[in-house]
């Protein structure tokens, strides 16, 4: 048993914006010497795909800053989500914000454990071949084994 601090995160969301908190916090915690595990469940599983295609949407999110006001009716048009996602990625790049791929890679380099919820993998018929090789598959009991003596536990 080490005296290392531990951080346990549950990642439940699979959009581009919500991909950031788990990977930023996990990579930083690892850099600070925390032993870190992220448990990916439900839509969070999308963050484990080898080929990420994460999107943002302003629908149902009135707080999202927009370059100009766009009426909700127009936000529902085909192609709007893809356009907003590409604008968001450009903006992040121009501000020196890391890509999700880069942050995930940094987490892996720093030995952050990535655990996929086996139940959700089955539920959504995910093919494990589509997920990155570093993923371990487990369930709620295994999460508690780690989180039970974690110093910090976050549900994102």
């Amino acid at each position: 048993m080490s005296d290392e601090k531990k951080l346990a995160i549950i990642a439940t969301k699979g959009s581009l914006d919500w991909a950031y908190p788990p990977f930023i916090l996990a990579s930083t915690a690892a850099a600070l010497g925390y032993e870190t595990e992220i448990f990916f469940t439900f839509y969070g599983l999308a963050l484990l795909k080898k080929k990420l295609n994460l999107q943002v949407t302003s629908l149902g999110n009135p707080a999202m800053p927009m370059p100009m006001p766009v009426p909700v009716m127009l936000q529902t048009l085909p192609g709007m989500q893809a356009m907003m996602s590409s604008m968001m990625k450009k903006k992040m790049k121009s501000k020196g914000v890391a890509s999700v791929e880069e942050l995930r890679e940094l987490c892996i380099e720093a030995d952050v454990r990535m655990v996929a919820c086996q139940m959700t993998v089955d539920l959504f018929d995910f093919d494990t071949k589509d997920l990155i090789d570093e993923v371990e598959y487990a369930g709620a009991a295994s999460f508690f084994e780690f989180a039970g003596d974690a110093d910090i536990c976050l549900y994102i």
């Binding site: 930023i24 990579s27 930083t28 020196g96 940094l106």
Partner: peptide, 8 residues
Amino acid sequence: LNCPLPIL
């Protein structure tokens, strides 16, 4: 570079 890259 923006947070958390400088630290990492």
